[in-house]
Computed example of a mutant assay.
Amino acid sequence: MNLATATPSEVRQLIRKGEIDAQTSGMCNGYAQANMAVLPKDLAFDFLLFTQRNKKPCPVLDVTEVGSPVPKLVAPTADLRHDIPRYRIYRHGELTDEVTDVEKYWRDDLVAFLLGCSFSFEGPMLEAGLEVRHITDQHNVPMYKTNIECIPAGVFHGPMVVSMRPMKPADAIRAVQITTRMPFVHGAPIHIGDPEAIGIKDIDKPNFGERSEIKPGEIPVFWACGVTPQAVAMAVKPEFMITHAPGYMFITDVLNAELSIM
């Protein structure tokens, strides 16, 4: 099966069967992918408020009913316990497990948040003839913690995480034009150029994902990233939290075109 042209339900079935354990960039072209954060009900309102105050890194696509693993708005036949290739389990802010299925961790008091993902704007960028380096080189996108503090909400606070794609300056301008139309999947870049200006000391050592080569004549372009909730979890230390592993996203039934402002 060609994973780039497969439907989301086809790929989710393969993931559920354990036949796919790979980062999802480039899968199901044309369909939106999502970051996931799952928290106990007593923290859900604070987190929802946090997402509303920090829409660049945390654009909400769906929120589940308490205890339900079904994202009714974006993929009503899916099951969030099984349909992501790789998950991370946090306890008191510490990463304790990385697994391919979370059924045994699921609880009746959990609420799942699905947040827009930058993988969704990569399709339109490729269609416009722009190179996406981590797809070319077949590795996970590099992601970095920054010195940009999110707006606090309730117990939640912490730094914004960004993803980076190296580009020629002219291509960066085109990328800004394309992604500005897609605010539900992070929208326009939050920074272009000098990494140290946003607190990144070594561009070759991402906090998440893998290094991308920046070639002569290219500049780094940074977008707000849905891995931000994981950085927030490390700062806030909730007693329990489930997330996707960075780069291993949930693939929705929503077309990217539905999330674009024309």
Rank of each mutant, 00 (worst) to 15 (best):
N2T: 09
L3T: 11
A4D: 13
E10S: 11
E10K: 07
L14T: 01
L14S: 12
I15E: 06
K17Y: 00
I20K: 03
D21P: 00
A22Q: 14
G30T: 06
Q33M: 12
A34L: 08
A37C: 14
P40S: 02
K41C: 01
D42G: 00
L43G: 00
A44L: 07
F45A: 09
K56Q: 12
P57F: 09
P59L: 12
L61Q: 02
T64P: 13
E65D: 15
S68F: 05
S68P: 11
V70H: 04
P71E: 09
K72T: 15
V74P: 09
P76M: 01
L80A: 10
H82W: 06
P85I: 09
Y87I: 04
R91V: 12
R91M: 08
H92E: 14
D97F: 00
E98A: 14
T100P: 01
K104L: 10
Y105L: 11
D109R: 12
L110P: 07
L110F: 15
A112M: 04
F113G: 05
L114A: 08
L114Q: 08
C117L: 08
S118I: 11
S118P: 01
P124Y: 06
E127G: 01
E127V: 08
G129F: 13
H134N: 14
I135L: 15
Q138D: 13
Q138M: 13
H139I: 14
N140K: 11
V141K: 02
V141H: 06
P142I: 10
K145W: 14
K145G: 12
K145Q: 11
T146D: 03
N147H: 04
I148W: 03
E149D: 14
C150V: 12
A153Q: 04
F156N: 03
F156C: 11
F156D: 05
H157T: 07
G158T: 12
G158Y: 10
V162S: 05
S163T: 13
M164S: 13
P169F: 10
A170M: 13
R174L: 15
A175T: 03
V176G: 00
T179G: 12
M182Q: 10
P183W: 06
P189I: 03
I190E: 07
H191M: 07
I192N: 06
G193D: 04
P195D: 09
I198P: 07
P206H: 06
F208I: 02
E210M: 15
R211N: 13
E213G: 01
P220M: 03
V221K: 03
W223C: 04
A224W: 05
C225S: 09
C225Y: 05
V227R: 07
T228I: 10
T228K: 03
T228Q: 04
V232S: 04
M234G: 13
P246W: 09
G247V: 01
G247W: 05
Y248K: 09
D253R: 11
D253A: 10
D253C: 08
N256D: 14
I261R: 08
M262R: 07
M262C: 00
